[in-house]
């Protein structure tokens, strides 16, 4: 970042980071309960990796999504020969998604996002008040 960070960039980038997290949660939940014909094809939980970005000039710190990684446990094998997705031995692989954990994650993401919106609103009204200094 060439330009120094502002409080709006801090909150705005935190919001986009939380949005990435919300997207991964949506993908994970959408794939919960699905099966595949092999372990490699089965869906694995994806998670974003957050990283703090410090700005030396202003002392502010915002957050970036460094990467999105596959996390969590491996897909589980289930014997289900009648399933059209079953392999030649009659096994299917269940997508590795922990729905409870995803829902908890979703709530936390929503709360963090709301906090960032609140920060931005407060900062906005204070900046506007400062601009009107001496006019009333």
């Amino acid at each position: 970042m060439a330009q120094p960070l502002t409080i709006f960039q801090v909150a705005g980038r935190a919001m986009s980071a939380q949005l990435v997290r919300m997207n991964t949660t949506a993908s994970n939940l959408a794939n919960a309960g699905g099966v595949a014909s092999s372990e490699a094809e089965a869906y694995r939980t994806i998670k974003p990796v957050f990283q703090t970005e410090y700005d030396k000039a202003t002392g502010l710190a915002t957050v970036n999504v460094k990467q999105v990684v596959q996390a969590g446990e491996a897909p589980t094998k289930r014997y289900d020969p009648t399933n059209p997705m079953a392999d030649k031995d009659g096994n299917v692989w269940e997508n590795a998604v922990d729905e409870t954990r995803e829902l908890v994650d979703m709530m936390e993401t929503a709360r963090s996002y709301q906090n960032d919106v609140q920060v931005m609103n407060t900062a906005k009204s204070l900046v506007l008040d400062t601009l009107k200094l001496g006019q009333n």
Binding site: I7, T58, S112
Partner: peptide, 16 residues
């Protein structure tokens, strides 16, 4: 205010 906003922004960053 900027510092507290940074803290809130990094509420879920490991190691912050």
């Amino acid at each position: 205010m900027g510092l507290l906003a940074s803290n809130i922004a990094n509420a879920s960053t490991p190691g912050y």
